[in-house]
Design a protein around this nucleic acid. Sequence first.
RNA 1: GUUCCCUUAGUUAAAUGGAUAUAACAGGAGCCUCCUAAGCCCCAGUUGUGGGUUCGAUUCCCGCAGGGAACGCCA
Length: 592
Amino acid sequence: MQKILDLISEEMKKAFAEAGYDAELGRVTLSNRPDLCEYQCNGAMAGAKKYHKAPLMIAQEVAEKLQENAVLSEVCAVAPGFLNMKVKESFVRDYLREMSGAEKFGFQAPESKKMIIDYGGPNVAKPLHVGHLRSGIIGESIKRICRYAGHEVIGDIHLGDWGLQMGLIITELQKRQPDLIYFDGSYEGEYPKDAPFTISELEEIYPTASAKSKEDEAYKADAMEATYKLQSGVRGYRALWDHIIAVSVADLKKNYANLNVEFDLWKGESDVHDIIPGMVEAMKKGGYAYESDGALVVDVKEETDTKEVPPCMILKSDGASLYNTTDLATIMDRMENFHPDKLIYLTDKRQDLYFEQVFRCAKKTKLVNEDTELVHIGFGTMNGKDGKPFKTREGGVMRLENLIREINEEMIRKIRENAETKGYEIDMEQAGETAKIVGLAAIKYGDLSNQASKDYIFDMDRFTSFEGDTGPYILYTIVRIKSILAKYEEQGGDLTDMVIDEAVNGSEKSLMLELAKYNAMMETACEEIAPHKICAYIYDLANAFNHFYHETKILTEENGQKKAGWIALLALTKEVLETCIDLLGFSAPERM
RNA sequence: GUUCCCUUAGUUAAAUGGAUAUAACAGGAGCCUCCUAAGCCCCAGUUGUGGGUUCGAUUCCCGCAGGGAACGCCA
C-alpha cells in the first residue's frame, strides 16, 4: 500500500509538470505549521533559481492546476513560496478503509534478509544489573521490528562463559570445599546431577574470588591454572563448569522472562573454543596475521582513516585467546552454520572502536562475504539523576531484580490509590499482574523513547509518575479504547460490522491523519532500526486519540451509523497501538 | 597527547536544509451530575560561542569553549 505522502505527492508532481516545471519539485511533506495546513510542498522555492522566477509565482501557477482535485480540498500559495494544502475528508476515509483491511496496515516489507543479533551477553555467575537492561530491552525490540519487517532473525545472548572468571569461581570453590569429587583427578565415575552450590552462593563466590585475586598473586596463579585446566578439558572441571552454566542460565532465563526478553540461542564464548586454533592458522597462512611484541595481530588500518586504528589482536603474547578471538571465531561459526546476510551487535557504545577493528579484520581475513553487513549498535549509559552511571541509594550497583521489584511495588501502590479514589474493589492478585505489565511498560518505554546511542537519565520518580510521555500513558489510552469497545458490544453493537466514515470534526480528522502516517513511520523505524521513532509515533497517536475522545461522546451518539464509524476508527487505533507496543516488547492490561 | 561523540526552556527529551524550534516534567490558571481525571485545556519560558555555505541552518563545513568516551595484550 502506498504511503499517504506519496499519493499526495503524485498529485503535486502532476501539477508541477502541467505548469511546466520539473515534476520532482512536487514532493510533499507533513506540515510544520498544523495551524495553517495539513501538508506542505516547498518545491517552488527550490525551483526558483532554476527557472529564474519568484517562488511565489511558481507556487501560484501550481496551485491553480490543483483547484479541481480528488485528493486535496484546499491548496494555496503563500509567501515566500510555500504551497499549503489540506486533504479531502473522503480521501482520508478511503485511505484508512484500505489500511484497516490490509495486512500490517499496508506497511510494505523490504527485501527479506537473514540476520543474527548478538546481545553482547552477560557473564555467567554474575547477577544481572541495570547495565544489562538496555541490551535486553533494545535488542528485544530490534528483533521484533526486524521480524515485523519480514527478516529472519536469530537472537543470540552470547554469554561470557569462558574466561578467567570461570577459573576464579572454580578456585574459590576448591578452597571452600576441597573434598568435592570434582577435584579428585583419579575419579572416573559419574558426577552428581545436582550442583554443589546455589545461584546466591555463586553470585557471592565470584566477587569474593575476584577481590582475592587482585591482592594475592598465588591465588591468581591458581585461578589461571584452573582456567587452563578447564579449557583443556579436565573432566572434573568441565563437570563443575556445566553446573555453573546450568545454575546461572536458569537464573538468567527467569530474570529475562520478567523483562519479556527471549533469546533463540544461548551460545557463549565457550562454543567456539575448539575452532579457534583452525581460525588462527588460517589467518597466519593467509598472510594476514603476524607477530608484534609477542602477540599475534592483524593490521586493519585503512588509507582513508583520520584516526589511528590499532591492529586487531588475535592472540595475546602468552598465546591465550581474548575477546577479539572469540568474537571472530563466533563470526566464522555463524557464517558457516547460519549463512546470515547481516550481523548486529548490541553493546555499550564505548566498544565502537573495538567493533570497527573486529569488523575490518573479519572482512580482511574473509571470515565474512564482501556483502555481509556487520553493524554495531552502541547504546549509551543509563545514568542516575546526577548524570552519573546509575547506582543504588547506597552507591552500589543496582541489581536488575531489585529495580524491577521497586517499580512493581510503586505500581501496586498507585493502582490501590487509584481504586480507592474511584471507590471500587480490586482483586489484589489481579492488581499485582497489572502492576507488572504497567511497570514493564514504564521501564521499556522510558528506555526506548530515547535514541539508543545516547546516554539517558533513569529517574525512578519520573518513570513511575505516569504523566505525560510515558509507557503508562500509552497503556491508559489503549485501556480506554478497550473499555469503550467492550461497552459497545454490551449495548448490542457488532464489532465485525463497521466501517470508518468521513471525519466530522477537526480532532477526528487529526486522529485519522495520524493513523495514516503509520506505514511511512514504520518504514523509517525499520530502515534506521530506531525504536524511538515508534515511541514518538504512538505518543502522537495517543494524544490525537485522547483529544478526540475528550470532544466526542461516542457511546451516547444516537446516529447508529455514525457511532459504528467511530467505533471502527477506535478499533483501528487500538490495533495500531497494540501492534506498536508489541514491537517495543510490552503489552497492555485489560484495565488499570 | 591523538581521535571520536555530545552541547536545544529550570529539568529530561524531539525536529529528511524550510514559515512563529516541538513535547513532557517542574511553575501558574481552568475542566469530573458525562464512555477510566494515569485524562483534557490555557499561560509563561529555549538552539554554548565566532565565522562560512545557502533564497533559507538546530540540521552541512571550519574555529573556540564546556562535557563524555576510546586509544594492543580487560571485556
